[in-house]
Amino acid sequence: MFRFLIKRLAIMLLTLWGVLTISFGLIHLAPGDPLSPMTEFNPKITPEFRERLIKMYGLDKPLHERYLRWLKGVITLDFGVSFSIDQRPVWDKIKERLPITILINSLALVIILLISIPVGVYSAVHAGTLRDRLITIFTLLGYSMPSFWFALLLMMLFGVKLGLLPISGLHSSVGYEEMSFFEKILDWAKHLIMPLLVATFGGIAGIARYVRNSMVEVLESDFILFARAKGLPERKVLYRHALRNALLPLITILGLSLPGLIGGSVIFESIFGIPGVGQLMWQAVLSRDYPVILANLVLVSVLTLLGNFLADIGYALADPRIRTGGRT
């Protein structure tokens, strides 16, 4: 296990380095210098100020020096200063938004698992029946649903027509301070229902479909036949023998689906006005705030990388075949 860990860790660090280098390449190989969109059309910026900016961002240095400087900056979480009017350090801006995005995505992940696994198992056990077909139709719809349109439909139904749920923000803006603790929780929950529906819909469909197919496959295998022949009760066959084997690869699938989940934050945070990292990214792209864009890109990729690493470890803990070899 120890050797496995070291190897995985080494691969992760290598991938991390690659991710950072690709991100660096993005800005510095793109045509034009990163300052031009900020300064070109802005008459207030004098040539002297531009000089100062170039010095400040180290753009007068040769490429390899900038590269090392950038790597050092990332490691010390120093991403420079935002191009926006407030000119705050980029890390400060991200730091206050990161918990919100992580909270929503973790909640979404838990909800996805809680719903998709039972649905997938149910569908597999009833494979071929009408119920299975209905679930399949639902999962295919989930695959194909544009999440932002789903968000619009929810807003139209629950926000506008029925007036049940607030359509924007994380909590009420009026009277929030006077609420008691429980009222605050309730207020948050109400604001989070629609964003969570949007965040989980596609994931539930995808994972349920995966669990179903994996379960169907396992149920056809010899050891299940054997367990049944032995006279084990069906419940035991399903949950002790089949489900365990069907769910193993799910750990990897979850790791792989993290980028999609986090990427979805851009969409539902922008639509529902949730002050998370996704909304920050969107605003930064619209205003071409390059330091913020780059820092965001790096951070979400590192989060994904960490998630994948944990999934790898989890898989090895759950399945001894992995850590003793066989896979490179």
Binding site: G260, I262, G264, L297
Partner: peptide, 22 residues
């Protein structure tokens, strides 16, 4: 390894970052 690296970027974020420069 290159494939793994590209898979780490949440696609939407990567696309947004590139579009911002173009």
């Amino acid at each position: 390894r290159i494939i793994d690296m590209f898979l780490c970027f949440p696609t939407i974020f990567l696309i947004l970052a590139v579009i911002a420069y173009l």
